[in-house]
């Protein structure tokens, strides 16, 4: 119960940050990428503010033995660069440059009642679901081959 409530509060802080920062506004995001045209550097400040707070905060939090509501920290341990990481990220950037939405920007935009945000999120969920189905099917084929 406390675990669920706290996740909701943290989501609220995240969504407020996204809404205030301009990350939920495709016109602003696309202008950030348009360095040769109507460049709006605001989103560099979003990234800067978020990184400073997270880098300092993580150092303090990860000194503790465990999180408040869980038995351990779930930190990714993979440090290897591979093709899915780089190719997937390259593809994500293309979609971000077309639409002006990233996943974290689009979710709070749903709450603004904007039709394009709902269309984007629906399409993105289909994309994630399809990608996972492909990976799971591929994994099963690999497993049956060995």
């Amino acid at each position: 119960m406390q675990r669920t409530f706290l996740a909701g509060v943290v989501g609220l802080i995240f969504g407020t940050g996204i809404a205030l920062s301009g990350m939920a506004n495709p016109a602003k995001v696309l202008n950030f990428f348009d360095v040769a045209g109507t460049w709006d550097p605001s989103l560099a400040f979003v990234m800067g503010g978020a990184l400073v707070v997270t880098a300092i905060g993580y150092r303090l939090v990860l000194r503790r033995a465990k999180p408040v509501c869980e038995t351990k920290f779930h930190i990714p341990t993979n440090r290897k660069l591979d093709l899915p990481l780089v190719a997937g990220s390259a593809v994500f950037g293309i979609g971000w440059g077309i639409s002006g939405f990233c996943p974290g920007g689009a979710i709070p935009a749903l709450g603004l009642g904007e039709a394009s945000a709902w269309a984007f999120v629906g399409a993105m969920l289909i994309g994630i679901f399809a990608a996972r189905s492909i990976r799971l099917a591929h994994g099963q084929r690999l497993a049956s081959a060995t």
């Binding site: 943290v10 940050g17 920062s21 990184l51 905060g57 999180p67």
Partner: peptide, 20 residues
């Protein structure tokens, strides 16, 4: 944007602190 970014960072820190 800096303020919004700081809040995004705060949410990241809190999710790690509460839920890991």
């Amino acid at each position: 944007s800096l303020l919004g970014g700081a809040l995004i960072g705060l949410s990241a820190v809190l999710l790690m602190a509460f839920h890991g």
